[in-house]
Every structure is written in structure tokens, then in C-alpha cells.
């Protein structure tokens, strides 16, 4: 699937594909293919270097972008999924379990988006209900009890706005996670991989280090929601996306995130393997850093980090 602004990429890729198909019978097209590939690289780079905030939102929401399952499969070994909040049920919009990252055993937790419609219906498009946040907290506390670091992968348009979710205390579930994560006595490393949608993202997003993929976004409200309230017109989302400062470089400047994990030009959906390499490198560095700190120091620094925001 190509995004609107990826038209030039689409055209070049189509041409390359057509030429490649006739390469066997016409070996002379080889040099043209090579030059087109070069052009493709350049044009992809130049488009992705200049993404507007609204285009970045499109990339962050790309249906082919890696999901928590891809990160688990590529970054971890020995994954054991754990289900349920021990109170109401299991929420497939949050996936979590034991995982091994290189030489560390960790607890990996993330929002689950799907790549197909059926997948997405099953995991509610990555929009968690209270039992999802409570499962996440249960697993984090379990991790802390046995001294495992917690890794969270954030990718949600927001907490699910449904009648049942409200009745089971969506607000309370998120609030409790914020409070408990701020004092959880084990390292917490958070990565915003796609959409960081408001409270639904923050509900598993309080930690010692907040990393963010280059084309991920993180916002207090969706650009559409902000546009419909402040501009009184949902179609002004591109303007709202600009005003809200939701891209990784903007958030780094605001000191809300600690590091940007660069995506290959063309985005994580086009180059998942390159993205995994970058994420692995960042996790390795920060995990080693955090593991080297005493829990007391870790918690004090975590507290100070949030105390300073907006001061």
C-alpha cells in the first residue's frame, strides 16, 4: 500500500518491477534498472527527509508497519505470553510476556495492532480496555517482583472509547498505571513504535527512558480530534498535527523523549529488517545503562524526569 505522498516511489517501483520481468529476455535493461534503483533510493530519501507532521502521522499509522508481534519475533527469543488481569478477562489489545533480549530476561509488553481486518477486529485495532491496562500492570509488578526489566512498545490510537470500557473504569486503570509505573522498582524502557495516542499510550508509557522511532508520533490528542474541537473542522487535521508538535524531533526538543531511533529512509513499513537492527541497538545500549543503576537511583531519576517536565 502506498501513501498519497509516495506516488513518485510507487511509479519508480512499478517501472523497476516491469523491467525486471523482462530482464531474462532483454538483458540490456539491466543498466536502466540499476539507474532507476538509484533514483528510487534518492527520491525515497528526499521524501522521507521532508515529511510534514501530517505525513508522519500517515507513516506511523501505516497498516504494514511492524507490530508488537514483529518486534517480539525479531528482537527476542524464548517468548512466553501471559494473559489476563486476574479480575475480568484478557484483553488482546495488549500483548505481554516473558522474553529474552540477548543476555537479559525481560518482561515485554505492548499494544497489539493487526495487519489484516480480522486481526484488527480481534485486537480491537490496538485500543485497549481497562483489563488490558490492568494486565500490563500485573505483568509489570510480576517483573519487578523477580527483578526483570520491563520493556514496553507503544502503538495505539488511544484507549478504547466504549461503554464497557468506561463502566469497567478506563480512567482508573490508566491512572493507577501512571502511579504504579512511576515507582515500579525495576528498570522500565519504553519505545513509541507507531502511534502514541494520548492516555492510552501513557498508560504503558511511564518509564526511565522513552525512545521513539523516527516516524512515530506521540500526542495528547489525535490531530483529527484536536482539529474538530479547536478548528471546529476535522479536516483541518494537518494543521492540528503541525501545531501539536507530535513528531520525534519535536518531542526530543521538548525533552519528553530521550532518543530517536532512526528508521531507514522509506520507513519501518518498507524496511522492517533495518528498523529491527536500529531498535535492537538502542535497546541494548539503554538496557545495559539502566541495569547498571541501583533501584534507588533509578527511581529518583525517574521521579525527577517527570518533575521537570513543564516546569
Amino acid at each position: 500500500m502506498y501513501l498519497d505522498f509516495e506516488k513518485p516511489i510507487e511509479e519508480l517501483e512499478n517501472k523497476i518491477r516491469d523491467l525486471s520481468a523482462i530482464r531474462e529476455s532483454k538483458p540490456e535493461v539491466q543498466s536502466e534498472i540499476e539507474s532507476l534503483q538509484k533514483q528510487l533510493q534518492e527520491i525515497t530519501r528526499s521524501i522521507y527527509e521532508r515529511l510534514t507532521p501530517w505525513q508522519t502521522v500517515q507513516v506511523a499509522r501505516h497498516p504494514e508497519r511492524p507490530t508488537i508481534r514483529d518486534y517480539i519475533a525479531n528482537l527476542f527469543t524464548d517468548f512466553l505470553e501471559c494473559c489476563g488481569d486476574r479480575a475480568f478477562g484478557d484483553d488482546p489489545a495488549i500483548c505481554g510476556g516473558f522474553a529474552t533480549f540477548e543476555k537479559f530476561r525481560v518482561m515485554a509488553i505492548g499494544h497489539q495492532k493487526g495487519k489484516t481486518v480480522e486481526d484488527n477486529i480481534r485486537c480491537n485495532f490496538g485500543m485497549a480496555r481497562p483489563e488490558g491496562y490492568r494486565k500490563a500492570l500485573r505483568l509489570m509488578q510480576l517483573a519487578a517482583k523477580f527483578h526483570l526489566p520491563v520493556l514496553t512498545f507503544i502503538d495505539t490510537s488511544g484507549a478504547f472509547p466504549g461503554q464497557d470500557a468506561e463502566e469497567r473504569g478506563q480512567a482508573e486503570a490508566i491512572a493507577r498505571n501512571l502511579r504504579e509505573m512511576s515507582r515500579l522498582p525495576t528498570p522500565i524502557l519504553c519505545v513509541v513504535t507507531g502511534e502514541g495516542g494520548s492516555g492510552g499510550a501513557l498508560g504503558i508509557g511511564v518509564g526511565d527512558r522513552i525512545l521513539m522511532l523516527g516516524n512515530a508520533v506521540y500526542s495528547v490528542i489525535s490531530p483529527e480530534g484536536c482539529a474538530s474541537i479547536l478548528w471546529r473542522d476535522g479536516s483541518k487535521a494537518p494543521e492540528a498535527a503541525e501545531a501539536l508538535k507530535i513528531t520525534a524531533p519535536a518531542l526530543l526538543k521538548l525533552k519528553v523523549i530521550d532518543e530517536i531511533i532512526p528508521e531507514p529512509p522509506g520507513g519501518a513499513h518498507r524496511h522492517p529488517e533495518g528498523t529491527m537492527i536500529a531498535v535492537r541497538k538502542a535497546l541494548r545500549k539503554h538496557l545495559a545503562d539502566l541495569k547498571g543503576m541501583s533501584i534507588k537511583k533509578l527511581l529518583n531519576k525517574r521521579y525527577e524526569k517527570y518533575a521537570k517536565l513543564g516546569r
Partner: peptide, 26 residues
């Protein structure tokens, strides 16, 4: 709720106030 005009910094006030409440709770 959170103030849109201050974007992500508003969202972070949720974490900030909750962190202080964690200490009060303890």
C-alpha cells in the same frame, strides 16, 4: 482533561502528578 494547547507537555502532567501521588501513597 489535558490541555490541547500545550500538547504532549500537558499529557506528561498526568504522569508527573501521579508520580507525586505515588510518594504520598507510600
Amino acid at each position: 482533561g489535558a490541555r490541547m494547547h500545550e500538547g504532549i507537555i500537558s499529557l506528561m502532567q498526568m504522569a508527573k502528578t501521579s508520580a507525586a501521588l505515588a510518594r504520598l501513597h507510600e
